[in-house]
Design a protein around this nucleic acid. Structure first.
Lengths: 309, 309
DNA sequence: CTCTGCACATAAACCCAGCTTATGCCCTCA
DNA sequence: TGAGGGCATAAGCTGGGTTTATGTGCAGAG
């Protein structure tokens, strides 16, 4: 692959910065540049100029100014919606990063598997912050063994693992399900099959996979063992992202966690290939030292992770 | 509600800017600060300092520097994954904004309903750009009537609408389905029901809704007509976002498009309430003037919107 | 019919984050 | 042991974003 051609001018130059996007959301919410400025803690002229330069940058009028306030234009409403998604992603980033800072005096110390830390935890932390602002959370991400160890040595209060069973010495509860699914590029022949793929066919096909040792790989190996075992992979890559990129461009399928490809599926960058009679589910569990039911902030967080109380 | 307390220091001050996040992704991909710097078109010291200040800001070591290159630390890998989501949201923003600029010489003029423009189109545009870089797309967002008019007057080449039937004078094809779902805050009693909600109960409950006239509202009205008709809404709001916020805080349920609440459902900020025997589906359609099958870029885009060719 | 209040715009001056160029140190490999 | 790749430090510059101060336009009250 090598260095792909980067865009002539980077995203950062074509997309307003986070401060500007937050300001736009405030304008949409409050209906006036001045009020938005006050809410964001800047002066009114600063807000005015910032919105204006954003309009210049995008080449679209975003707000309709009047002596009685400002309303979004139609285009502005659309831009604001897209901006909201950027800001939400940034909020998740912030929530995660803050937990990662991992200060010793945190009131709640969480240990989580990579997949959960990556895809689910930031959202939970945002919800937790909404309910109990000021709860300092620290996060340590690692595999199931590392999570168990932290809990057993008292270095963590609550753990999250994905896998088939609860590690020795821990109690736990199922908080959700993940599913490994077969994905391919939209151009791949499998997306046009009229008959469902069989497990044996899948097993016989060289796939693009994570390297041996990843949780995903283990589950897949186990599930396909009685269908002839997994064929030699076409490509073994170190990160889920690299795998996704390769699936899109190399035109070979892969098997990935539903959590990891949700975005790609709805955007149709990838397509799920149903496989007859193959269930690649795995449970997502919250875990804690046997006998010590979570209390305080841990209990609060636990409540957020389950569909119903 | 009023002006809620904004955080003491805004997101923009706690989250590195897009340029820094892009740089981090480049470092992750290329394995060296210098190469990443070159790829992003800046000098090596600039990259070094930027990564360093990001580490200082987050309070976490992100890359392990060595005389032979730089690798991500464990925390760095996690941060990079979260960063990727921010950058992806920014890419969607950019793709949408660029189309909105709507230059007259665009090779492909698209008219789309708000929902589709907001949630689906940016992803399609990114995919289109990947396949056919340089295809200038312009976007006009409006309701079904506006879309139809643009197509019939030749002001647009391809349209997207959600609804029950194809507007007069247009041909179309179904490209997907949307579903209206009942949602409530996780704390709402409905999330703890043991028996499924019935359509009649739903109809009898005051909901938080979009204002009369929105597509969502129309479909809901029609579906509940034979279950006693919709009760007077508890609250009528102008934007989907306002409705979502109200559902979370006011503890009353609402009915919203699946597309609009996907994020909230996975983050458990909202919970879907199943309703027995109520199907609130609506089709998403690509449309074009009757008899004029899409060709060229329009055909290309159309191909991206469907699960299989 | 004018006065007051609110909202946005303009102008001038300032500050700092981030960039570049120049240079040095460290490690590896031939 | 010399060459090259990789990162760090230093010094100087630039521009975007900010503030304060002030001006304009409109609405509604008196």
């Amino acid at each position: 692959m090598g260095d792909e051609a980067e865009p002539a001018v980077s995203l950062a130059h074509r997309v307003p910065d986070l401060g500007a996007l937050e300001l736009l959301l405030a304008v949409a919410r409050l209906g006036s540049l001045g009020r938005a400025a006050r809410a964001r803690g800047i002066s009114q002229p600063a807000a005015s100029s910032r919105i204006r330069s954003m309009e210049r940058q995008l080449g679209v009028a975003l707000v309709e100014r009047s002596p009685r306030g400002s309303r979004l234009t139609d285009a502005g409403a659309l831009v604001t919606d897209w901006a909201r998604r950027v800001v939400e992603a940034a909020e998740a980033f912030d929530a995660g990063a803050q937990a990662l800072r991992g200060r010793r005096d945190s009131r709640l110390r969480v240990a989580a598997s990579m997949t959960i830390a990556e895809y689910l935890l930031p959202g939970w932390l945002i919800a937790l912050r909404a309910q109990r602002p000021g709860t300092a959370v620290s996060l340590l991400a690692g595999n199931s063994r590392a999570v168990a160890e932290r809990l057993l040595t008292g270095a963590a209060d609550l753990g999250f693992v994905e896998g088939l069973e609860v590690p020795e010495g821990l109690d736990g509860t199922v908080i959700g399900h993940d599913r490994l699914i077969v994905v391919a590029a939209p151009s791949h022949p499998w997306t046009r099959r009229r008959t469902e793929l069989t497990a044996a066919e899948l097993a016989a096909t060289p796939l693009i996979l994570r390297e041996r040792g990843s949780g995903t790989r283990q589950v897949l190996d186990a599930a396909l063992a009685r269908h002839g075992g997994l064929a030699a992979p076409l490509l073994e890559l170190a990160s889920t992202t690299a795998v996704k990129a390769a699936v899109v461009s190399e035109a070979a399928p892969s098997v990935l966690s539903e959590l990891a490809v949700g975005e790609e599926l709805t955007a149709r960058r990838l397509v799920e290939i149903p496989v007859r009679g193959l269930r690649l589910g795995r449970e997502l569990r919250a875990v804690w030292p046997a006998g010590q039911r979570p209390a305080g902030p841990a209990r609060q967080l636990l409540g957020l992770t389950r569909p119903t109380a």
